[in-house]
């Protein structure tokens, strides 16, 4: 498939994530939207990796790398995302235990 399709999908997913973060009030859903963003990036990176791999095979293009490090990056994003999930869920649970709500209306509570 052409690279553009992947880019469109990735950007679409990413945008959905961003819009979700900006519009939703539920902490868990915001969090899921953020994960969506991360996964969109993963998809994009893998697609680019493949693209550069193909470019590397073509000597006319003279690209510097073989594109493998894009996949490497994805692994690290996954790890970091896992760590974020762990911490984030812990924070949300902590919050829920104290307030019995995961609604993100901190703007009017923290101010005082």
């Amino acid at each position: 498939m052409p690279i553009n399709s992947y880019i469109f999908v990735a950007i679409a997913l990413f945008s959905i994530g961003v819009i979700g973060v900006l519009t939703r009030r539920n902490a868990i859903i915001i969090f899921m939207c953020i994960e969506l963003m991360l996964n969109a990036v993963n998809l994009l990176l893998v697609a680019f990796s493949k693209m550069h791999l193909a470019d590397a095979a073509n000597p006319a293009l003279k690209v510097a790398t073989n594109g493998a490090d894009g996949q490497l990056f994805v692994f690290f994003i996954m790890v970091v995302a896992a760590a974020e999930v762990t911490v984030g869920l812990a924070i949300i649970v902590m919050m829920y235990r104290n307030t019995h709500s995961v609604d993100v209306n901190f703007l009017n509570r923290l101010k005082n």
Partner: peptide, 17 residues
């Protein structure tokens, strides 16, 4: 708690970007 949640959400959001 709220600070942590807010920081976390903002932080991961910016990480995504």
């Amino acid at each position: 708690n709220e600070a942590a949640l807010k920081y976390f959400l903002m932080g991961t959001f910016s990480t995504g970007i």
